[in-house]
Amino acid sequence: MIAANPATGRAAPPPPARKWTNTRILGHVLMTLWIVAGAYLLFYLVSNIQSPFVLKYWTKYAEGLVVTVEIVGLSLLIGVILSVPIAFARSSKLKVIAAPAYAYVYFFRGTPLLAQTFLIYYGAGSFRPFFEDIGLWWFFRDAFNCVVFAFALNTAAYQAEILRGAVQNIARGQWEGAAALGLPKPVTFFKVILPQALMVALRPYGNEIILMIKGSAIASIVTIYDVMGETRRAYSRSYDFQAYIWAAVLYLMIVETLRRIWDKLEARLTRHLKR
């Protein structure tokens, strides 16, 4: 704010009133619609909090949430471990190593997660005698294992690309500088390159976690009772649409919270880059 004019002692004139342009009207109309919709949703949720549906199914939703967290957590963990050798193989100079890694990444990024899950869950049955022979049938018989297996392979491909992109993004001079200091290659990688690469990779990793949470809804199609699975079961038993509304609220809260945490984390880790 500009204070009073020292010469005349008069206050500065107020800023001109903003005109009601078409965009402003449109914006206010749309915002009003959202507010009304949001208020109605809130009213709907609050008025249903003691409804028979919620009382009957809320424990189911909690169990589903645990299953979702298990699937996502396990897949991401296995994916991280698998992604490192794949990323290395992918950027190898030897064609014999690089080509299979490229094919792996291309396959898992180019086909739908749903088709991959079906391929592993139903497809494992085609090799039942083989799996029984090597004593792995117990693993593929269980839908949960199959889903985690499929999701882990899928996310490993995406994470390998993230890791590779981030490592390649580091300037050559960093490698050369470390070499000039006499650091061996592994030490250079873990102490010089990786910390910088992870900073670049932080955002894509966060996106991958969110994609995995959203993708995990697919598990419900192969008889897993995660949040989505419990939702579908609750809906098929009660024909009450609030089943889906609660699921939407739950997923939105999870994803939004995670996104905000990730923003904070990124701001914290890159604070030395801010001026």
């Binding site: 995990s216 809804a217 419900s220 989505m228 939702t231 809906y235 889906y244 939407a248 994803v255 996104r259």
Partner: peptide
């Protein structure tokens, strides 16, 4: 729509 799983969006539209 970026926060909801695509499958859930589909069910919301389909049954909604």
């Amino acid at each position: 729509f970026r926060g909801l799983p695509e499958l859930l969006t589909l069910f919301l539209v389909y049954y909604g």
